[in-house]
Structures are given as C-alpha cells and as structure tokens.
Simulated scan of single mutants.
Amino acid sequence: MLKTTSKRFSLLSSRSYQLYLKNRSCIHTNTPALSPRKDTKAQWSTAQNNKWGQFQPIVPPSLFPVPVRSRPRLPVCSTIPYPYYAHEGISSEWALSTPYNTSDDLIKLRASAQLAKKILYMGGDLCKVGTTTNSIDRILHEAIIAEGAYPSPLNYMGFPKSVCTSINNIIAHGIPDDRPLENGDIINIDVTVYLDGFHGDTSATFYVGQVDNEGQALVECTKESLRKAINVCGPNVPLNEIGRIISDHASANGYSVSDELSGHGIGREFHCLPLIYHHVNTEDDVMTPGMVFTIEPVLSQGSSIGLMWPDEWTIATIDGGRSAQFEHMVAITEDGVEVLTD
C-alpha cells in the first residue's frame, strides 16, 4: 500500500464534487453507488478511450451512502494476532528515524513477504472478465486468514477491505466493490499481510481479457522501471537514485510518475521511514544494510496528478488516463540487495 506524501491532489468537497460530475459528464446523479460501469458510460469516457486506447475509465459514484469507516468488514478470528492499529482504525506509529532489521527480523520478514507474494498471484489468477473486486477481496481475505495472518489494510485508518484493487485510471487505494471486471481492464492488486509480527507488502498490475497495445505498453514499462530501480540498489547508494532511474525510464517512454505517493519502510510497522520517492528528488539519505523498504512506482499515460474521491481513499488520475503499478519489498544487505517478495 502506497504512502501518501503530498496533499497536492484534489480532495473534492460536496459542491465541487457535483460540479466535477456535471463538467465531466461521466455519471448521472441518480446512479446507484455500486452500479456496473456499463451504466455510467458517457462522453468523457469515450473521449479518454480515443486518446489513450480502448478501455473503460472508472468513475466515482454520485452518492456514497455509507461512510467508509461504517462499511461492514470481513471477520478475522480472534486467534490470529492483530496489528495494534486494527482495533481502532488508526495509522502506523512513525518513529523519527529509520528502523534497522536484525538477521532474526529478516527471517520473519522473508516469511511475510513470501506469503504476500503467494496471495498476490492467487489474486492475479482471479482477474477474469465478469469477476467483481469484492469477490477477489473475499477470496484473498479467506486465504490470508487460513495462513494464520492478518490482512494489513483491513481497518488501517478505517480502510474497509483486505486488499486494494485499482482499475484502469485509478492510481491507488481502490476499494473493492461489486463492479464486474471488463475485457480490456488493467487492475493493480495490492496485498499486505501481517504474519508473526511483521508486514509483507507487494503489488502487481494484471490484464483482464484482451488489453490494447497502449495498456500493455504502460504495464510493461512500469514493471521494467521497478526492475531497473531494484538493480541500482545496494549499500551506500543514495536513495534518490531510485527516483532518478524510474523517472528517466518513464520519461523516455512518454509516461509521468506520481510524486504524491511513495514507497516506504516496512517491518514491524506497516509504514515507516525511509520514504522512497519514485520521482526525481534531492533526498540525501543512503541505503544501509538492515533497511527494508518497498519500491512501488506508479506510471500514468497522462498527468500524474491524482484526484481523491469523497471516500477519502480512492485516487484517480485527474485526466482519466490509465496508470499502472508494481511493487517489491527489498532488504539492503552488506553486499547488495535482496528482493524479499520475488
């Protein structure tokens, strides 16, 4: 799960939200909150299809009848250890410095990371035309619980689901719902699990049915940008090299990189220092053995600016272009880097 590092993206007020709906011509005011996307197609959607390929943009519902924090949650049995934030729906406890992990910590981190990987690719197999993201969330929730782990996003700052599912023009933190996946969609599934006191976090973007060339090019470029960033990692390497490498690769291929969301340290805490910026930056910290963090670039076809829906979680591209994301969790070692989720 990405860490929000900027408030630049738009958070729509009630009045501006209605103006957004009207000006974009993307949805009717009487559309039910969870109606299928085929009922919300309109001029704005068609315009984006012509500009960036053949896909159906996800548009916000006109009404959010149930606040996110009040939505029902899938149960987790009491025998499974909960992270401390899960009971009250709060955030991570941010220390002032980066935590460094011992060799014993790394054993547990590897286990949580490998479980996250297993669940992620189970989710990828579920990305079929007609499948709802709610059903993906339910199946993955049950699989995580069966492994004796807790789904880390569940009630993190009130998040109501166990995984994030971000389709087409949704940048991040998409909340699973009853919309069926459509042929040509791309979908990012973001999985984090809490196992034996440590979090494991990974994500990937999957194809649904036949995806157009423009969509495939975006996804493959995003995956390659992550690979390039990992390859540069190692002890004493400046953390800002990650942003330079990703930005250079994205720019060379005509894509923008989100500078509003970042990777993050992870371990006993879901989110902690260091923050990992995927855009060009001047952060002066260096990679040090014992650091464990995520690298999770988001590349977009058009503008990288995000627009937050009134649910205060879902972030969409402001211009309707598609975005893609891949994420790995890495540990800096004495002689290089270990990809824990590989």
Rank of each mutant, 00 (worst) to 15 (best):
Y156A: 02
M157F: 06
G158T: 03
G158L: 07
G158D: 02
F159R: 00
F159M: 07
F159H: 06
P160C: 10
K161P: 01
K161V: 01
K161T: 13
S162N: 02
V163F: 02
V163T: 09
C164Q: 10
T165K: 00
T165S: 10
S166C: 02
I167K: 04
N168W: 07
N169P: 04
I170L: 06
A172P: 04
A172S: 15
A172M: 06
H173D: 11
H173E: 11
H173S: 11
G174F: 01
I175Y: 01
I175N: 01
I175A: 01
P176T: 07
P176K: 01
P176E: 01
D177N: 08
D178N: 14
D178V: 05
D178I: 05
R179P: 00
R179S: 01
P180I: 03
P180S: 05
P180R: 05
L181Y: 06
L181Q: 05
E182C: 03
E182I: 03
E182Q: 10
N183V: 00
G184M: 05
D185C: 04
D185Q: 06
D185G: 01
I186P: 02
I186T: 13
I186D: 01
I186Q: 05
I186A: 03
I187K: 03
N188P: 01
N188L: 12
N188Q: 10
N188S: 15
D190H: 07
D190A: 15
D190I: 06
V193Q: 02
Y194W: 14
L195R: 05
L195N: 05
D196C: 07
D196W: 04
G197L: 04
F198T: 09
F198M: 10
H199G: 08
H199L: 12
D201C: 14
D201K: 04
T202M: 09
T202N: 07
T202D: 05
T202V: 14
A204E: 15
A204T: 14
A204I: 12
A204Y: 15
F206A: 00
F206T: 12
F206K: 02
F206P: 00
Y207K: 14
Y207W: 14
V208I: 12
V208F: 10
G209S: 09
G209E: 06
Q210N: 15
Q210E: 15
N213A: 15
E214C: 07
G215C: 11
Q216M: 14
A217Q: 11
L218V: 10
V219H: 00
V219N: 03
E220S: 13
E220H: 14
T222D: 08
K223I: 08
E224G: 03
E224K: 15
E224N: 14
E224D: 13
S225P: 13
L226H: 08
R227K: 12
R227E: 12
R227S: 08
R227T: 12
R227F: 10
K228P: 08
K228S: 10
K228N: 12
K228G: 08
A229P: 09
I230C: 11
I230W: 14
I230R: 11
N231F: 13
N231Q: 14
V232H: 11
V232D: 09
V232L: 15
V232M: 14
G234Q: 09
P235I: 09
P235C: 10
N236I: 03
V237W: 05
V237N: 08
P238C: 13
P238W: 10
L239R: 13
L239G: 07
L239P: 05
N240A: 11
E241N: 08
